[in-house]
Design a protein around this nucleic acid. Sequence first.
DNA 1: TTGTAGGCGTTATCAA
DNA 2: TTGATAACGCCTACAA
Lengths: 351, 351
Amino acid sequence: MTTTRKVKLQDVAHHAGVSAATVSRAIARPELVSPETLARIRASAAQLGYVPDGAARALASGKSMAIGAVVPTLDSAVFSHALQSMQTTLSRQGYQLLIASHDYNSAAEAEAIRTLLTRGVDGLILVGAQRADSTWDLLRTSGVPIAVTWCSTDRFHSVVVDNERAGQIAAQHLIDLGHKRIGAVIGARQFNDRQAARLAGMQRALRKAGLDLPDSRVTEQPLTLAGGRTGCARMLALDDPPSAVIGGIDILAIGCIIEAQSRNIVVPTALSVVGIDDIEMSGHIFPPLTSVHLPVGQIGETAARSLLEQIAGQKERNTIDLPIELVSRKSTARLSAAHRHKDGEKKSARN
Amino acid sequence: MTTTRKVKLQDVAHHAGVSAATVSRAIARPELVSPETLARIRASAAQLGYVPDGAARALASGKSMAIGAVVPTLDSAVFSHALQSMQTTLSRQGYQLLIASHDYNSAAEAEAIRTLLTRGVDGLILVGAQRADSTWDLLRTSGVPIAVTWCSTDRFHSVVVDNERAGQIAAQHLIDLGHKRIGAVIGARQFNDRQAARLAGMQRALRKAGLDLPDSRVTEQPLTLAGGRTGCARMLALDDPPSAVIGGIDILAIGCIIEAQSRNIVVPTALSVVGIDDIEMSGHIFPPLTSVHLPVGQIGETAARSLLEQIAGQKERNTIDLPIELVSRKSTARLSAAHRHKDGEKKSARN
DNA sequence: TTGTAGGCGTTATCAA
DNA sequence: TTGATAACGCCTACAA
């Protein structure tokens, strides 16, 4: 079997008895070509199995019809959902999404951005607003439209959700239920401003309520179920274990519930758990997880749209703040008498 | 603020006082350039903020250093995990992964393949071996190295897992536990040969054991937790509900467990559930899910490697069959006396 | 409505 | 070790 030599525009033109320019037009703006020639060209193209060369096209036109997205990881219900939305929105406009991930590593993110830029993307979607100045500079000088998601920045357009408020809402919910000792199982704050902001929100709410969130009651864990379990175990091993814990993301919260149950600690009676994200699974586990709902799909869609608008010429920088809200389910409950009693004991014992 | 005009190879060359060719070499094979000039060029490039133009590079060199991957959906623990592995393996060799998804739609898959081909990918990773002849032809004539995953085909290299055997193993496990009435909650077989093969495997095992899997005990559901719950509900609503059910993928199986529990049906005492995939979550839920383990990460890595080898020139077509095995956990149990009794009743009542 | 011609930014072949 | 100089395949004024 012969390796088919690449058929190019010229070949199609030849076959159809027209010039290359006409074939090019037939593809880009069919309305500028007479119906007959158009039909002839299309037939030839199909017959020869012509596939345009994107590189040549991009080089000549200056547009790649591709949008890059750089996310921390693909292995996450949240990001994969957002990406799915972006993909849908973009492909409807003829754009393709190029995805890269960096595993929560700042240098790897910079590298991914550079790669995508090299690839000539017409726009870039980023997660989070925390990166080295040199990376910001790279973005700025590239002149490529940018959409920053999840966290806001005044450097570029952004489509965000108030992470600090999410943490606050989660904490406030527990405070309202009478909890005094609250723990937090979160992801590493290293290169994750979403987690950092959420924790800050929790701390703020607690402080305002006259409570505190000592370091001993905050644990950073891998963003997996196993991480949630470990984090919960750590909380339960404290001298004065919390009566409620907040997961920095739902997966962590679900891990907490699982760990508690594996120790026959009833949720929410003996331990309240609240998460942030509200992924599909959260509504289905037992007990259903109370969580702060974030419009993840909407973030993706809106970011994609923002990019499309920027490409179309709209230039004023703006940030779109999407609404979030608590979804109260069954994993949280009012602090029980037993707990309150125990709390008193511990408190007096320690003071 | 001025929109920085794109700085090109020529600019760097000028700035460094050398020719464009030398700069090009400095980037591609630094060892061919004298240390001093190399240093000078690098300094200039950095100072000017030079970013190579991938399109021009691809056009001139004929390689894009990009590999395309077309998956049914990003919204799946299985595929996102496999993609993550591919990404890791490929980026180590300087390749970037371009991801597209098609939502289990055959035409959309063909479209995605065409887009990626247009984009000039140096290789393509596909899921499943079921597609229109025209699509196969497109792939063939493109001459691009291909790696088909999950299901085998004799058309191209493939990295697979024996899906039929997976179904068989799951069913056999239940048969060994004494179950007679077994149900299957699977995904639509429409454009999903993995699900079709797994079901076929289940049927084979049952037939061999003198049992059967009537259509009434097979239900196709969306590949989500909600789908699993619905499917389980349907099974339980039958006149003679099964004593065990197999999920076509773990998510479906987990949905079944959740649904059963929401009806106070104890798993595995009153209902055994087994899945196929063995995702992270499966080992953590209660009861931990018995499942047929598929080496998903390995599929991704191996497929990526296969492509790399093909690009490097290795041409003999082959298929790599990765081992699978049952991971027995707590969601399955021997058919209880109560059930056996009930079974007898029903049987006699109906015969 | 269609054709001509120049150029897009790099790579790669040859000389020097 | 470095520098000219063709490609690479397509797009897009501009001209016809």
